[in-house]
């Protein structure tokens, strides 16, 4: 810290990294206290029977053993994986399609792109409220729209069988724009030469997408998949504001169960154990995705070389 004002050695331009520590130190202190400290303390608490306001006792790995046989927790893992699977696939498919469209030129493109990304910037709780009204079985506008195509009426989030797909519908509406932006960034960086020669060879639009565009944007799609996976696993606001995990526990994901355990039942020790397991699941799945991304890169390189 005291090195802060040390002037650079005269005549030497080489900027040594030691001199930059004072710039990073304040952030390190903040990150240490609001991010690292909670991690460490969570692990400590996970090894204790710890009720808010009550006594604490060391139980070692007891909380984790209890988790393994907690039917509600195991069910919440299934819900989370189902939710995540759907909430990654749908936005990625639609997002890639939207990016290809937005890569074209058309009038009002900038304004329309702004409108298109509004769902992901809007306050999640505020839009969740409106979705609740739209899901209303009798008065909701969604069932009214469905009646035009001869479908419905559905009970959407009020039915255990349809609640997760309905929530994924909201999540898809909300997060397709992020996938679009990432893939659009990828499309903007593509070279034009392959398309010119493909045109000369008489390739169709689909052939060009399949054999030129897709392999080159695959790394960007994988980035989108990773970000979506992390965010979908952690999804809280939409689920909590619309169903609180219901009906019953039909849409209770790990995150919602974690909330209920720690802040509805004030079972802090057990909640911490859930947090630890949850974090491990998020990191493990992210690593799998990163590995897939590395592989897709190699394949793309191999494809380019061939």
């Amino acid at each position: 810290m005291t090195q802060a004002a040390t002037p650079a050695t005269p005549g030497r331009i080489g900027l040594s990294s030691r001199d930059y520590w004072p710039f990073v130190a304040p952030a390190l202190i903040v990150v240490g206290s609001v991010i690292v400290f909670p991690w460490v303390f969570t692990i400590y608490m996970a090894m204790h029977e710890w009720k808010a306001g009550g006594a604490q006792s060391f139980v070692g790995l007891g909380n984790f053993a209890r988790l393994a046989s907690d039917a509600r927790f195991l069910e919440s893992i299934v819900h989370t994986l189902l939710y995540t699977g759907l909430a990654v696939t749908a936005p990625v498919v639609l997002g890639v399609f939207s990016a290809v469209i937005f890569h074209e030129r058309f009038p009002l493109r900038g304004l329309l792109r702004g409108l298109f990304i509004m769902p992901m910037m809007a306050t999640p709780v505020a839009i969740a409220l409106v979705w609740v009204m739209m899901f209303h079985p009798q008065l909701g506008v969604l069932n009214y729209l469905l009646s035009f195509v001869g479908l419905g009426p559905l009970t959407w989030v009020f039915n255990p069988a349809t609640v997760i797909p309905s929530l994924v519908l909201v999540e898809t509406w909300q997060w397709t724009p992020l996938v679009m932006l990432i893939v659009l960034g990828g499309l903007a960086s593509l070279p034009t030469e392959p398309y010119e020669s493909a045109l000369i060879d008489g390739a169709s639009r689909w052939q060009m997408f399949r054999h030129i565009t897709w392999p080159m944007i695959l790394p960007f799609v994988m980035v989108a998949v990773i970000i979506r996976t992390i965010d979908a696993l952690k999804s809280f606001d939409i689920i909590f504001a619309i169903t609180q995990g219901g009906p019953g526990t039909a849409s209770e994901t790990i995150n919602i169960y974690l909330y209920n355990t720690a802040f509805a039942y004030y079972n802090m020790g057990y909640g911490s154990a859930i947090a630890v397991v949850f974090f491990i699941i998020v990191v493990a799945l992210s690593l799998v995705m990163l590995w897939l991304r590395q592989r897709s890169k190699w394949n793309a390189d191999a494809g380019a070389a061939a």
Binding site: P38, F236, N255, L258, A262, A275, F279
Partner: peptide, 8 residues
């Protein structure tokens, strides 16, 4: 997950 910061 944001919630896991919150307990401690």
């Amino acid at each position: 997950p944001g919630l896991s910061y919150l307990i401690p």
